[in-house]
Structure formats: C-alpha cells, structure tokens
Design a protein around this nucleic acid. Structure first.
Lengths: 219, 219
DNA sequence: CGTATCCCATACATTCGCGTATCGAACGGC
DNA sequence: GCCGTTCGATACGCGAATGTATGGGATACG
C-alpha cells in the first residue's frame, strides 16, 4: 500500500500519465533549485509547461507530489544499483576492491538529488507517516544490497560477519560522505577518503575466508 | 570575517541584544517545527513575542537570521563538545571505550537541531557563500576534535594513523547514523550499531601502541 | 530628573499564492 | 467519424506574507 495508490484507482489514460510524469520531473528540478519549502505550485507548473489546472487535476497538494516524486526517483536509483550489481554478478571473479568501486560508481553523488533528499528527510522527521516511508526504503535498500554485497564479497574471499550492521553502516557512510563530497566538489581527496572509509567498513564487518592476503581491502 | 559582523558595528544596547537573541531562539523552534522554507517572519516574531517591526529592525531577511542562528548554535554545540572532552582530559587513565562513549554522550542526537541542520545543508548546497560557511565549520570541528581524540586514544594505548581521514570519517559516521537513530527513535539496536560502527572506525584509523590487548576496541 | 536617541509596534499598500468552478478541447471506444 | 468522457486552461475571490513609513514609548546618559 504505497502512497502512489492513495488516489482512486481510476483508469490512467496516456495523456494523464504524461502530464503527471512531466509534473513530477519538473518538481524535482524546482525543488532542487528553490528548496521544497520555497517552491510553489505555479513554479512547478510553469517548469512543466502547464498551468495550475493540470496540477490540481493530478495532485491535491505539493506534499503529495513531493512524496510521489521522491518514491519514484529513489526506486529508480535502487533499480540502477541493482542493475550494476547484477552485471557484476555475471563476471566470474572480481576482487573485493573492484566490486566496491563498481558499487560506488553505480551510486552517483547527485547534487540536486541530495538537496531534495535532505529536505525530504527533514520533512519525514516531522511527519510520522513519512517516517515510515523512509524506514521502509531503508529496508528495501538492505534487501537489495545485502545479498549482492554478500555474494560479491564471498567471491572475493570474504564472509560477512554482521549483515544488518554492515547494511546500516554502508548507508550511513554513504549519506555522511556524500555531503562532504558535495560541499567540496573539486577536492579529489575527499572522494578518496570516502572510498577508503568504505574499505575500512567492509573489512570491519567481514573476515577473510581463505588465508590469501588479497582478501583484505587494505592498500 | 564571519557573517555575524556583516552588519554595521553600531553600539549594541542591552535591549537590542535581548530581542535579537529571543528572535534567534524562536527561529530555531519555528524552523524545526515548520521547516525553514515554510516558516514566515510572522511566525518567528509571534513565537518570540514581538511584531515584525522588531524583526526588520534586527535582520534584513529570514535568510540572514537563519545563517546567524545556525552559526551561533553550531558554535555552542562545539563548545559543549570541547568542554566534555576537556573534562575527560583531566581524568588520569581512561579506556578508549570510555572515551568514545563520553564523546558520543557529549554530542546528543537532537531531533529539532538535526531537522534544521539538514535544511541548512541543503540550503548551503545551493549557495556558494554558505557552502564555505559549512566547510569552515567542518574545519573547526576537526581542529577541536582531532587533538583531543588523539590524546585520548594515546592515553588508551593507540596512535592515530590518519588524522584527517579519521576526522572526516567521524563526522560522516556521526551524520549518517544520526538520521538512522532519529528515524527509529525507539529502536535501541540502531544506537548500538552506531556505537559499534564508531568503534570500528576508530580501530581502523589507529593502531595499538603497546601489545596490550585492551588497546583495541573490539568487544 | 530631563533629554536625546534608539528600538519596536502599528498601519498601509501591494504582491503573491492558493483552491475552486467552469468551459472548451483533446482523447478513447466503437 | 461520432460521442461521451476526461483533462487541463482560464478566471475569480480570498487570505496571507511582505516591506516600509511613521509615531510613541523605553532606554542610556549626564
């Protein structure tokens, strides 16, 4: 029972789907530029090439649109991630280092998206029902990420010792370091530190299978 | 040349200082409840017990007040932290575990403050000059934190191998795990995972001095 | 205690954003 | 191609927030 089904299950025609999607896309841009709080229905409509009539025919409030947009985009990012990891799964043997780098590349640090998510998080902390939305998204991330990370590490000769611990740690480290990267976009050292922190975390939450020294991620 | 000095250096009378401070305090509450974007000058003034006249006599815009408020509060939190660490410094010998716990207790995970900071961060990512404000704040955190962390660890028999790496890692892990704690406020396991992640990070960025096994933070 | 200065309350004009109601046009089914 | 339905543009009224200009009361200071 996701929030995208809260509206009456009317038939969705082609035209409706298109304008709805254009409004969602425009909303992401506007929210990223102006901030959700300072954004208006007019701005979103103008950006999408419609008038307010279209908006109120598709959504009841900016809040509803915000939620729908965020769920859609975050699900899309999760799909991207899944795809990148699945592609890795087809390769025969990869080092843990390669796997890590591939995952990090699959989760690009998007400026605009981060701004929007930061505000959505703050918003969710004010709204109990939105809080559950974010919590369930974290679960979805874990469910997607953990098995793949686990097999990737296994292929590299390491076994995960604490599944949930690793999952939460990865998300936390990602979120925390993403801000740093965005605040100093030109500083390559920040990104390297991010990568190294990930290595440390993966090492800390997994142990080497074999005695091969290449199992560990230390440089 | 902090932003708090941008105003003309007029004499600051007692009354002015008081109403200014009350406005700043009220702003924190209002921003936390409503979100910065959805907050209005009226709301802040009403909360503080003034009218808009008082506001425009002290600030030129909500943005200016937001910046002033955030700088003040974040500096105050840093002072708290410094105090807690200094108190630790007086103790003769502490385990690394005790030190870690003390630091974590000194940085309380405040719901309202996090909401405000999240929005401020998003705001800063849109505004180059604010971006520098946040960057310099990170520097201030490092300058305050690192020497104290380093001596605390040294007393516990560990030497830091990568100062800046550890500093950024601590901040990132703090930020990342703080959200998780706030999103599941009743789940004690989240906080334990947070603590454990901190232990792992400290271990990863430092090595044992002596051969005493008590140097490491592993349980 | 008197006064000059400062600070905040009040009033005002204006702009902005919202939500609704209505109507013409585009669409889909046949 | 026709028609019933749906979708989105337009117009309207309303309330809210903004910024300024002005006046009166508090405050600092001798």
């Amino acid at each position: 029972m996701t929030a995208s089904e809260t509206a009456a299950p009317k038939r969705v025609t082609r035209r409706r789907a298109q304008t709805r999607q254009r409004l969602l896309d425009a909303a992401l841009e506007v929210f990223a530029e102006e901030g959700f709080g300072r954004s208006t229905v007019d701005q979103v409509c103008e950006r999408a090439g419609y008038t307010r009539g279209a908006f109120y025919s598709n959504f009841t409030s900016l809040d509803e649109l915000f939620l729908a947009m965020w769920e859609q985009r975050s699900a899309a990012m999760l799909d991207d991630l899944r795809g990148a990891l699945d592609r890795l799964g087809t390769l025969e043997s990869v080092s843990a280092d390669e796997a890590l780098r591939a995952v990090l590349d699959a989760v690009p640090i998007d400026d605009a998206w981060y701004r929007v998510t930061a505000e959505f998080t703050a918003h969710a902390l004010r709204n109990p029902s939105l809080r559950r939305v974010m919590a369930s998204r974290e679960e979805a991330i874990h469910d997607t990420l953990l098995p793949l990370v686990e097999t990737a590490l296994a292929r590299a000769g390491r076994r995960v010792t604490d599944r949930t611990g690793l999952g939460h740690a990865l998300v936390a480290v990602h979120d925390g370091t993403a801000v740093q990267c965005l605040l100093e976009p030109d500083d390559e050292a920040v990104r390297q530190r991010r990568e190294e922190l990930f290595r440390h975390v993966v090492n800390a939450y997994s142990t080497a299978y074999s005695t091969q020294s290449e199992g560990a991620l230390d440089e």
